[in-house]
């Protein structure tokens, strides 16, 4: 249990996907205009990563390994992720307008979000069992959501700040990201 907890903590804070593994930078810069969209995107990412990781884990151990076609891993994983996103979007569209408003509009951005494919591949390369896969595929996107939310709070003030014209927008946002990475590197070694 302690091992799982420390693994989760490491994934959320120390090896944060955005700040130390450089994944999901596009939504980190693109959907952080306000904290409401940051939370919507974060929850959608958690849901998709959790679902897609379980399916890819099952696919790998029940289909790819018995048939000895592990080289199909990348191609089948991206297809699983893309299909899962399409089905999720379809169900949300059909059954809940309010859910669509808060989460559904971010789903088209998730197919090409590298965090999803990374977590699915990482679960296999690290040799995680089912429990570890579940913990990993919840805690990694949780770290993404945490950083996205923190960044959106900073961003709201950053946009009204007086910056040089060529630094406006993404460049100054990346400087803020560097400072956040510096702050988060202080957590290294707590687990």
């Amino acid at each position: 249990m302690t091992e799982l907890l420390s693994m989760a903590l490491a994934a959320v804070i120390i090896n944060n996907v955005v700040l130390s593994q450089f994944l999901g930078i596009c939504p980190f810069l693109g959907v952080s205009k306000n904290s409401k969209s940051a939370i919507g995107m974060g929850v959608a990412v958690i849901f998709v990563i959790f679902g897609a990781s379980l399916i890819t884990y099952a696919l790998y151990h029940l289909v790819l390994v018995p048939f000895k076609i592990e080289y199909m891993q990348l191609i089948s994983f991206i297809l699983v992720i893309a299909t899962f996103v399409q089905f999720t979007e379809m169900f949300i569209k059909k059954y809940s307008a309010s859910l669509y408003k808060s989460l559904g509009i971010y789903l088209p951005l998730i197919t090409t979000n590298c965090v999803v494919l990374f977590v699915a591949q990482d679960n296999i390369t690290q040799g995680y069992d089912l429990i570890e896969t579940i913990v990993n595929s919840i805690s990694v996107p949780l770290g993404f959501m945490l950083v996205l939310y923190l960044f959106s709070c900073l961003r709201e003030r950053l946009d009204s700040a007086d910056t040089l014209p060529s630094w406006k927008g993404n460049p100054v946002a990346l400087v803020v990201a560097a400072l956040m990475a510096l702050a988060f590197s202080g957590f290294a070694g707590i687990v």
Partner: peptide, 25 residues
């Protein structure tokens, strides 16, 4: 040594992005 890690990556990228925006404008 910071420049081999994530802080340096973000900073270098930001500087080049600003430089390219300036050249384009």
């Amino acid at each position: 040594s910071l420049f081999s890690g994530s802080v340096g990556a973000f900073l270098t990228f930001a500087c080049f992005a600003a430089l390219f925006t300036w050249i384009r404008s």
